[in-house]
Amino acid sequence: MDNVANSQKYVRDSLYYWDSVTFLVEGVLFKVPRRYFEKNSNIWSDVFTLPLGSNQAEGSSDENPIRLESISSIDFQRLLMVMYPENSLSQCVKMNQDQWVSVLKLSTMWGFDEIRKKAIAELSKINMDTLDKVVLARSYSVGDWLYEGYTALVKREASLSFEEAERLGYEIAFRLCQRREAAFRKAGFNLHRSFQGLGTEICATFRAELIDAGHSGRPPQDFHLGAGFLERL
């Protein structure tokens, strides 16, 4: 009883007394400080509006975790690797494309803006397949990737395959093929063809998709679509 009485006199430090939260994802329990979730995501801030201090509160214990039904445990672990790098190998092991895609997926879903920016920056350093870049851009609203990817698909020598058209969706694939035919007709079929004005045409053709993905809908002023464009993607 004395210990209980004494503990009631203590004051919790405002900066360094952290509550933890327990998640259950695909049968795997994760217990982490809830501070980052609460401070950096409006979605999770709303979730934690209700107190988690009692044994009955969801997320307060292994017996009563917050159950995340719609995501994979590996995706969640990869997000935590970036969120809490001091507890992972991410500081000394370079994360690959699949790992950063997991981070991009969940940071976009939950509104972790800084982590999302980091994931986009790291993935931008990777020489991703153009079609993968377009699919990711459309899934997770990365406007610059969508602009770059559509432009590269229009400029490349090979036309879209049936499998690529399926991945893109037939309407987008059809419009890309139309734009490619018009661009090649205008540029000429030679090794040193010029695609002057293609950026503007791409933005006009796919304006709605680009804006939905967070792009301005206008070609960057310093973006030159010269002969070396494909090598820069």
Rank of each mutant, 00 (worst) to 15 (best):
residue 104 L to N: 01
residue 109 M to F: 11
residue 149 G to W: 04
residue 2 D to E: 15
residue 45 S to A: 13
residue 7 S to R: 14
residue 37 F to I: 05
residue 95 M to Q: 13
residue 204 A to T: 07
residue 100 W to L: 11
residue 181 E to C: 03
residue 184 F to C: 02
residue 151 T to K: 05
residue 44 W to N: 01
residue 88 S to P: 00
residue 3 N to V: 14
residue 6 N to G: 15
residue 35 R to W: 03
residue 130 T to I: 08
residue 2 D to V: 15
residue 196 Q to W: 03
residue 21 V to W: 10
residue 9 K to P: 13
residue 197 G to T: 07
residue 53 G to E: 11
residue 19 D to Y: 09
residue 83 M to P: 02
residue 176 L to S: 04
residue 172 I to G: 00
residue 112 F to N: 10
residue 77 Q to T: 11
residue 37 F to V: 08
residue 75 D to Y: 04
residue 7 S to H: 14
residue 85 P to E: 07
residue 39 K to P: 00
residue 72 S to T: 14
residue 191 L to S: 15
residue 70 S to Y: 06
residue 128 M to F: 06
residue 48 F to A: 09
residue 156 R to S: 08
residue 19 D to A: 10
residue 221 Q to H: 09
residue 189 F to T: 05
residue 24 L to D: 12
residue 70 S to G: 04
residue 47 V to W: 01
residue 45 S to F: 03
residue 44 W to A: 10
residue 40 N to V: 08
residue 54 S to K: 09
residue 104 L to C: 01
residue 8 Q to S: 14
residue 91 Q to M: 01
residue 125 K to Q: 04
residue 131 L to N: 01
residue 111 G to K: 13
residue 143 G to V: 09
residue 204 A to Y: 12
residue 115 I to K: 00
residue 147 Y to P: 09
residue 120 I to D: 08
residue 39 K to T: 05
residue 59 G to E: 06
residue 107 S to L: 02
residue 185 R to L: 05
residue 26 E to N: 08
residue 11 V to K: 15
residue 224 H to Q: 07
residue 183 A to E: 01
residue 203 C to L: 05
residue 158 A to F: 05
residue 73 S to N: 11
residue 107 S to E: 11
residue 184 F to M: 05
residue 94 K to L: 06
residue 215 H to N: 08
residue 180 R to P: 07
residue 36 Y to W: 01
residue 122 E to C: 03
residue 101 V to R: 05
residue 108 T to K: 02
residue 78 R to D: 05
residue 124 S to F: 00
residue 115 I to G: 02
residue 34 R to W: 03
residue 75 D to S: 02
residue 12 R to V: 06
residue 163 E to A: 10
residue 165 A to D: 11
residue 60 S to W: 14
residue 111 G to N: 10
residue 200 T to K: 13
residue 70 S to N: 13
residue 43 I to T: 14
residue 223 F to Y: 10
residue 141 S to C: 04
residue 13 D to P: 06
residue 229 F to N: 08
residue 211 I to L: 09
residue 20 S to A: 00
residue 110 W to Q: 06
residue 20 S to D: 07
residue 169 G to F: 12
residue 232 R to Q: 07
residue 106 L to G: 00
residue 179 R to F: 06
residue 142 V to I: 02
residue 91 Q to H: 06
residue 208 A to L: 10
residue 122 E to S: 02
residue 193 R to Q: 12
residue 126 I to K: 13
residue 182 A to E: 09
residue 96 N to L: 12
residue 75 D to V: 09
residue 219 P to W: 11
residue 83 M to T: 06
residue 11 V to R: 00
residue 63 E to D: 12
residue 120 I to F: 08
residue 88 S to K: 10
residue 9 K to D: 15
residue 121 A to S: 09
residue 125 K to E: 11
residue 214 G to P: 03
residue 142 V to W: 10
